[in-house]
Amino acid sequence: MVNSSYTVPQNTHESVQLVLSDTSSGTQSIAGEYILERDSSLDIVIVVLPGASVQLPLRIILKGEGANVNVSGIYLCPGSEKVKLSLDVVHQVPHCSSSQLFKGIVSAESIVDFYGKIVVEQDAQKTEAYQENHNLLLSDQAKVNTKPQLEIYADDVKCSHGATVGRLDEDAQFYMRSRGITLQQAKALQMLSFVSPVLSRLVKDKESIVLSVEKAIQTISSSLQ
């Protein structure tokens, strides 16, 4: 269990990257709270690789005007992983923005829970807050529970959320195969393009993380029927 609270000071930019791999010794739990002061910004990227069972309760408080936070993540769960992500983004003051983008590939017998809440308090006018959670569900036994929530108490805000659970598009697979791309490669290409909007947000060790993700996706693709 790791627990922390961190303040991003006025006029500064912070970037946090969390890469979680094998947790065979048990579920890892990482709780975190981030408080953003005036005109600060924070980018968080979370990568959950195969073999990682994690609980990630994150709380982000936009406390100073003009603060901006982007949280994004991917989770690759091809076995019996249990991943629980819960995010609270709280807008306390006006003129702040937040965005969340989470994408996951869930297969075999893994279980994913995604709880994302955006709270816009009464004073937080001119807030822009967005949340998206998209999942590829690749087996009948795997489960995804996604629960996006908006609590808005201010009246001049732009907020949206979207959640999807889908499968790989077979028409696109046939199109690729008709050009000589094998079914396995077609699936890998689809999965990689699915997660690439999050990968492009990596700042540190991008090359090696992308390589791990590519490898993991190749393995997932070859394990699918």
Partner: peptide
């Protein structure tokens, strides 16, 4: 067919 996220080069 549209293939979002895959560039023509990569395809």
């Amino acid at each position: 067919v549209e293939i979002p996220g895959v560039s023509i080069t990569n395809f």
